[in-house]
Amino acid sequence: MNNAFTKYRTWSWYEATARERVANLLDRGSFTEFIGPEKREISPHLALFDLPEAFDDGIIVGRGTVRGRDVLLAAQEGRFMGGTFGEVHGAKLVGLLRYARDYQDAPRVVVLLLDTGGVRLQEANVGELAVSEVIRAVLEARMAGVTVIAMVGGRAGCFGGGGIVVGIVAGCCSRIVISEQGRTSVSGPEVIETNMGVEEFDSRDRPLVWRTTGGKTRRLLGGADAYAEDSIDSFRDVAISLLDRIPAFDLDTMEKEHARLTQRLEKFGQCHDTPEIWKAMGIAEPDRIADLSDEDFNQIAQAQKEANHDAR
């Protein structure tokens, strides 16, 4: 996978909009959007709050090809309402996943470009339910033989800005590609600080936040299956390299995941900070993980037992 780390000169994943990510991830001209912005299917709820709507409700769903392979794809726009799940936003993703589940001639790979603060609080109840429907649809698609790959590296990360869960969606996918910028958690640091106090989690301590929830931490612990440089080309190449070996969603995989997560608690459950974990894993310079280049970091990650598994 090291050839994925040649010098990319293309778009930063982090800086790109959702539409830029889609356009540059897929083969040129291959994209067809479903319920595109011209249909103006906007949120029916934001007007109550005098908030502006987006014509795509902050998510793009459609199909295209990646290096000639047919895929279905969804991309959240982290710049609109923090990429949050509202009723329409969630339903577009549910529809895409159910299509993959129900039609054997649909593409067998779904790529989710997650960039979300979680549930849209103005639509809290329907947003949370939509997240739950997405999770169910991801798992039903996997059971029907569909591969669901999550990509996490955007501005909004993949967690709950309001304390609400989207990291769970990623954790239900077949594979997860993450970049250093791809923070993943259930409660956001600000939410933990607000609820539990600054002694529990100081959300302004940026190095602490990154080494607790950032992409490098998720990758080393095995919470992500592959690490990408912050570029659209890198995300694409890394994702393609994962397609050869995809875990099935079945009892065997769940028992393996159970053993993997049990071991993590046994080995690292008493650690207070991630460098302690890296030390326990036998990593030579645990305090330097944050400073490592993508290439050096990736070499370390690929050598760690915990980081590389089929138990998801």
Binding site: G167, G171, C172, V191, G269, C271
Partner: peptide, 21 residues
């Protein structure tokens, strides 16, 4: 969900996803 730094550090999202699955 439990709002502790330890839980998030250890990958709470994976544990909740595992239970869900």
């Amino acid at each position: 969900q439990r709002m502790r730094r330890r839980d998030e550090m250890l990958g709470l999202n994976e544990y909740l996803a595992h239970l869900t699955k």
